[in-house]
Write a protein that binds this DNA or RNA. Structure first.
Lengths: 153, 153
DNA sequence: CAAATTTATATCGTTCACGATGCAAAAGTA
DNA sequence: TACTTTTGCATCGTGAACGATATAAATTTG
């Protein structure tokens, strides 16, 4: 059939899209008690590794646009998790730093990765099979960054 | 280190989340000329395989909630791609069917899958490696469906 | 040094995504 | 048949994502 390639089953993207939404859903039981969302958790991960970063650095590490990250940070500031102060050398920058609450949340979030691993393995089975995807996903992501960048020229 | 597991690099979900967004971005050059978004393209794929389906069936095939799909279909109706008519046996149902425009778009969209495959391969390299992810993603998705379902009990 | 360009962030508008809730029709039950 | 429950869809509110645009500060250029 001429249209066979159009079939949903043949699509990689649909699976990535679905798997991404479902994994985010799997974080819910752990993030809801902390009052944060998955993207907010990602921002915290970035800041827990290194506090006091400009918006741009955070956006770059999360592969997000600044116009996504800025409102995200504004909501997090409103929730008392971060502060946003003007940069000193470069006053255009906004330096994002953790508040006491943001720092303390690290302790509460400590077990989330292992909880999630357990949840995934419980219903899926093979850890090895999932681990094997990681380097492929990394290559895919790097490739797509290039592809999408080339468009915006 | 105690917090090592928290590191962003160790997360599967972050990669899925990023890869999903970037692949959706890769569809842009092909979907923009048609005036549709990726989720709308997915709805069309479902209807091209079988026309005249209730909202629930479409939502189920896309692993989305009906409260996501309903507004999506409303926008698509507004754009003249689908019609939404009341069900005959079950009047609660809304049967979604393709309009002439929706049917004709199939021809215009015919080459999208191969274009996308080419884009992915161009910058990534190994088709085999990517293909190997598919069954793992399917298992992961099935597992997560179960995990997330168990929460809502 | 003044003018043009780039950079860092913010704002706006549109489209998802989904939890919570509402409502009417269908199905099940007493 | 009357009552309860379930089902199918819609609406509302919130939080992403991101293209387009704006603005001020830094940088480059003439």
């Amino acid at each position: 059939m001429e249209y066979d390639q159009l079939k949903l089953d043949n699509q990689l993207c649909f699976r990535l899209y679905t798997a991404a939404r479902l994994t985010m859903g799997a974080y819910h039981p752990y993030l809801d008690p902390l009052g944060i969302t998955y993207p907010q958790y990602l921002v915290l991960l970035v800041l827990w590794e290194q506090d006091k970063q400009p918006v741009n650095d955070i956006a770059h590490k999360l592969v997000l646009e600044t116009n996504t990250v800025t409102p995200l940070l504004q909501r997090m500031e409103k929730a008392g998790l971060v502060k946003r102060t003007k940069g000193k050398e470069d006053t255009r920058q906004r330096i994002v730093s953790l508040t006491k609450k943001g720092i303390e949340m690290r302790e509460q979030a400590k077990h989330i990765p292992e909880c999630l691993s357990a949840d995934i393995i419980k219903n899926e089975g093979s850890v090895e099979e999932i681990s094997q995807m990681i380097p492929t996903l990394d290559k895919l992501i790097e490739g797509l960054k290039q592809t999408n960048k080339q468009l915006n020229k």
